[in-house]
Every structure is written in C-alpha cells, then in structure tokens.
Computed example of a mutant assay.
Amino acid sequence: MADWAADVKIYRPDADDAAIAGLEKNYRLVMTDADSRYVALSDAEERATVKANFLTKKLGLELSDADADADLDEVAETMKADRTKSRITVYYLLAEKYGKLGLFS
C-alpha cells in the first residue's frame, strides 16, 4: 500500500494526520483499484465526478461549475509536477481549501 500521507505532505508538510487517516478510511476501497486511485484532472468526466461526488455530496458545497472548475484548476496547478495525482491528496487539498478537514478527522 502506498504512503498516501507522505504524498499529501509533499504539498502540505504540516498536514493533519487525522484528516489524512480519515480520507484513507473513507476511500479505502477506491484506493485499492489502480484505475481510481489517481485523479485525471485534465479529463472532463473525471472532473465532473469529483465535483458531484466529493465537492457536492461529501463536502456539502453548493458551487457553480465555474467555481468548482477554478478549484480543480488550482489543485492541478499545485500538483502540476506530479504526473500521478493521488485521489487522497487531491481530496485533502480541496477539503483544506474549504475548511472541511474536520469531516475526516
């Protein structure tokens, strides 16, 4: 199993370990599948899934498509040097942006 906490800490060295553990617990099954453990932020269908399932359903946000796309663009820019964008890291950065890490810790 990959060290998802280490991946998050590339971008947020002081990341909340409890929140990372909570994300890992919530997405344990997703992370075992090679096809779903990474997020293709350049793929429109993948972005729509992240917006609907994570930003709206999990975080409870009501964002316009433009705002959600801007958030995903911001995460993509942050992680641009990383060819494989871990779902845990992407979700951590999005939850952090909206002060929603407490949902996972």
Rank of each mutant, 00 (worst) to 15 (best):
A2N: 13
A2M: 14
D3K: 04
W4K: 07
W4R: 14
W4G: 08
A5P: 00
A6T: 06
V8F: 07
K9D: 09
I10G: 03
I10Q: 14
I10D: 08
I10H: 09
Y11L: 14
R12T: 10
P13M: 08
D14F: 07
A15Y: 04
D16M: 07
A18I: 04
A18V: 06
A18D: 15
A19K: 02
A19P: 02
A19C: 09
A19V: 06
I20G: 11
I20Y: 08
I20D: 12
I20K: 07
A21C: 08
A21D: 13
G22D: 09
G22M: 09
G22Q: 08
E24T: 11
K25W: 04
K25I: 05
N26P: 00
R28S: 13
L29E: 15
L29N: 13
M31V: 03
T32N: 10
D33C: 12
D35L: 15
D35T: 12
S36I: 00
Y38R: 12
V39K: 08
A40P: 03
A40M: 12
L41K: 10
S42A: 12
S42Q: 13
S42V: 10
D43I: 04
E45M: 04
E45Q: 11
E46Y: 01
E46M: 10
R47V: 02
A48R: 00
K51R: 14
A52E: 08
N53Q: 10
L55G: 03
T56G: 09
K57V: 11
K58C: 10
L61I: 05
L61P: 03
L61M: 12
L61T: 04
E62C: 04
E62P: 00
E62N: 15
L63T: 05
S64T: 15
D65P: 01
D65R: 00
D65G: 09
A68Y: 07
D69I: 01
D69P: 01
A70Y: 00
A70D: 10
A70P: 01
A70V: 01
D71W: 02
L72D: 05
L72V: 04
D73L: 04
E74D: 15
V75T: 09
A76R: 11
A76C: 06
E77P: 02
T78Y: 01
M79A: 11
A81K: 15
D82Y: 09
T84R: 15
T84A: 15
T84G: 10
S86Y: 12
R87K: 14
R87M: 14
T89C: 13
Y91F: 15
Y91V: 02
L93R: 02
L93I: 05
L93T: 05
L94R: 01
L94N: 01
L94K: 00
A95H: 01
K97F: 00
G99K: 05
G99M: 03
G102K: 06
G102R: 06
L103I: 07
L103R: 11
F104W: 05
F104P: 02
S105V: 04
